[in-house]
Simulated assay, not measured.
Amino acid sequence: MLIPRTFVVAALGWVGGAEAHGLTADDRAALHFGWSFDPWVVGLLVLSAALYVVGYVRLRARSRQARTVRAVHCTAFALGWFALVAALDSPLDTLAAALFSAHMLQHEALMLIAAPLLVIGRPLSVWMWALPVSLRVGVGCAVRSRWIRAPWRTITTPLAAWLLHAAALWGWHAPVFFEAALARPGIHTLQHASFLVSALLFWWTVFGNTQRSERSAHAMLSLFTTMVHTGALGALLTLSPGLWYPSYIESTSALGFDPLQDQQLGGLVMWVPGGLAYLIGGLAVAARWLVKRLPSPMRARAAQDG
């Protein structure tokens, strides 16, 4: 059985919103934007990277087969890891407290850059090899139990993952919930966690399980429909004549920007670059499908080439 390779990765985003994105009085006075080194975020990021390096080295020493594939996975994980760092610890995180457009860019980095790259990186299978043998066996037995296997199969069906991701996107952008996340650190943490977890599940249905032939059709449909509904949400934000999130008025004005224009820019971030990310994903799925249609010798040669 394929184990849930992305659930552990989701913990990296759970603490990403440890501070709510409403400015305090001191923040408004200083308006200084730098790196935010939350101990929990930094600790989880460092731990995840260390485990991956140990597991990767052990796997590479164990067998020379599929080294190219493992190298691709390692590169994807590294890029996804750096995307998490950029979203959760870089000045983008502190700037998101003052600008809605920066906040939207942060969310897009989590959902459209970090999440798909982490899924491609297959971190859990590599982390397993960093564990002691006894613990590795115990974890393997646990994830194969029906208590984990049945829920995992349910939430990773294309329809369930699509619905969860769409609900997270539309629900959290409702003004009442978005404003609550800006005001309360706990709710803001939940917002970031639900964005990342639902994105990991969504991209798992696209790139995670490639053994079933019908996955490509499901993946293309999921990507196209998600591109449509996220584009619609971005268009609503961009073309709206009024402000959706009044909490940003003071901080945006303090930086010399028009709050409505900042909202429009945030909508464009979701509408245009977001749509491009789903288009790139669709092209990757199409390329995967075409490679599978090649004769076996040509398929093997394509795999060796990269």
Rank of each mutant, 00 (worst) to 15 (best):
G17T: 00
A20I: 00
H21T: 06
G22S: 12
D26L: 15
D27H: 12
A30H: 14
H32F: 09
F33W: 00
W35G: 02
W35Q: 02
S36E: 12
D38N: 13
P39M: 01
G43Q: 05
L45D: 01
V46Y: 06
A49K: 10
L51N: 05
G55S: 05
Y56E: 06
V57L: 13
R58T: 08
L59A: 03
A61Y: 06
S63Q: 07
R64N: 07
Q65R: 13
A66T: 01
V69Y: 05
V69S: 01
R70Y: 11
L79T: 04
G80A: 08
G80L: 12
G80T: 13
G80R: 13
F82D: 01
P91G: 05
T94Y: 01
A97Y: 02
A97L: 11
A98D: 06
F100T: 04
E108H: 12
A109N: 10
L112T: 12
I113A: 15
A114Y: 09
V119E: 06
I120M: 11
G121L: 01
R122D: 09
W127Q: 00
P132C: 13
L135S: 01
V137P: 00
C141F: 13
A142E: 05
V143Y: 06
S145E: 11
R146S: 13
P151V: 12
P151T: 13
W152H: 05
W152Y: 08
T154I: 15
